[in-house]
Design a protein around this nucleic acid. Sequence first.
DNA 1: GTTTAACCCTGCACGC
DNA 2: TGCGTGCAGGGTTAAA
Length: 277
Amino acid sequence: MPELPEVEVVRKDLERDVLGKKIKEVDVRLPRIIRRHKQKKEFTTPLIGRKITKIDRRGKYILLWLDSGDVLVMHLGMSGRVERSTGRKALEKHTHAVIKFQVGGELRFVDMRQFGELFVTAGDQLSGVRELQHIAIDPLEDSFTWQHFSEILASRRMKLKALLMDQKFISGLGNIYSDEILWAAGLRYDRASDSLSAQEVRRLYRAMQEVLQEGVRHRGVTLDDETYKDLYGKTGEMQDHLKVYGREGEPCRRCRSPIERARWSNRSTYFCPQCQV
DNA sequence: GTTTAACCCTGCACGC
DNA sequence: TGCGTGCAGGGTTAAA
């Protein structure tokens, strides 16, 4: 399930591997994957013959800047993957787009559930893209201070988890990492965001930094459905370090109480009823 | 302002 | 064996 750490791992891999490469050919196999373009050409023409000059991330979006000033934007949705290939290997099932380079193989966009998306836009119009406009501050950015975080929490009266997952307030967190962060901070998912003491805010802030960095260090979470793998098809290792997600009924690693699962907003939330308050 | 549910999609596990 | 159902979930949107 690609969230901030998984997307960051992919971004780093791309930076190391495809920076400076020139695009020779683009093959869109499933039009749905470029759904905001009316025609394939609108997507492929700006890419062909262009060099990749920079690779950024905004929340869960990956931005590949081109030497023309255009940007190729990728969102992995919930099962999207970018795969590096020499081009000799047969296309895997659910390969929806292939970007071939002049030299050095190709990138394949594989996405079983088709929630992922690719599009191209002019760099100076990036801020006009609806989904990117509201992307809030990245929790791993230096400017994301605990004071700033404290203001965000106090400005609303939402359930903590809903606020953590809302990309308008903080970008990059999804269902897995928000559960892990809340457990690490010892806070319940349904606490009102404006009810936290200064100490609790700092604890939550620290937990967020630590859990996300740990996620990147362990190269992301790959669950049984294998929806996430890195550029080279390797699974992550963070799933072995999860404290609550997917552990319903198993003992809490802090206090041994059984982990509970709540159904909330059509998603599962895992938490320890004893040590998260 | 906040919460909830539905939608998009495929594969898989389950019960009958 | 095979069919129907529910679940997984990121993000948006509409309705409550």
